[in-house]
Design a protein around this nucleic acid. Structure first.
Lengths: 123, 123
DNA sequence: GTTTACCTTTACGTAAACGTAAAGCAACAT
DNA sequence: ATGTTGCTTTACGTTTACGTAAAGGTAAAC
């Protein structure tokens, strides 16, 4: 009894157009089943879409998002590949740490600007 | 004795092309002095460029970056404007907090994937 | 004095991420 | 049977953020 979704279900839930979802499919980021012509999305597809949109919010390209998503499920069989995966994972972790620094720097500047604003308003 | 920079100074320092810097100028993000034809950048221009690139790393559009940069120096004279600025600053702070959540979520997933990788490699 | 280096403008080209219009199938509602 | 709703494909259009030639100015270097 796993949940299934139509394209408009998902487009409404995530406030994107069906076009966007189809575009992601055309780029290999999604691969829903078909029932006749219609696309049928599983809850696993839905999670994938969620992850893609999270990447989008962070300024990742679709390729980057795809790469990251694929890092979540390493193929535990191939030891050689596993090492490569591990390196990629750690590279991404480093990049994310940098991004975190950037955000915190902006937050700091905004806090200072906020304080100056409040101060000027109180005089 | 304040530092001055040529366009190639800055392009080398930040590893971007002169074209990129000129493009930012054409979009109103930079406004260097001229010495004849040549562009002369002050250290304040340099900081602005740094901020633009930080925004770029975070997936901000140039318009967004410009908006944020302008939030750093509120005009303390106009009380009415100050209130608007304050609201904008707080909106950005909220958005950044959300972005931070996104990053931490990815970090968590990557940590788990990393652990599974290490585990599989150790068996 | 002309190469060389560095800068300039103008302008067309391009990749990514969709938007949008056209034309049509398929099922259900009237 | 026919409109409405919701989906489909195809394909050209658009915005953002630059890339990339083309053609030339200027000034130091040889």
């Amino acid at each position: 009894m796993t949940q299934l979704y139509s394209i408009s279900d998902l487009s409404k839930e995530f406030d994107i157009t069906p076009r966007t979802i189809r575009f992601y499919e055309s780029k290999g980021l999604l691969a829903p089943r078909r029932e006749g012509q219609r696309r049928i999305y599983t809850s696993s597809d839905r999670v994938r879409l969620k992850l893609i949109l999270r990447g989008r919010r962070l300024g990742f390209s679709l390729d980057e998002s795809l790469e990251i998503i694929e890092l979540y499920n390493p193929d535990n069989n191939n030891k050689k590949q596993l090492k490569t995966y591990l390196e990629k994972i750690q590279q991404k972790q480093y990049a994310l740490a940098e991004q975190l620094k950037d955000i915190k720097a902006i937050q700091k500047s905004l806090k200072e600007a906020e304080a100056r604003c409040i101060d000027a308003l109180a005089n």
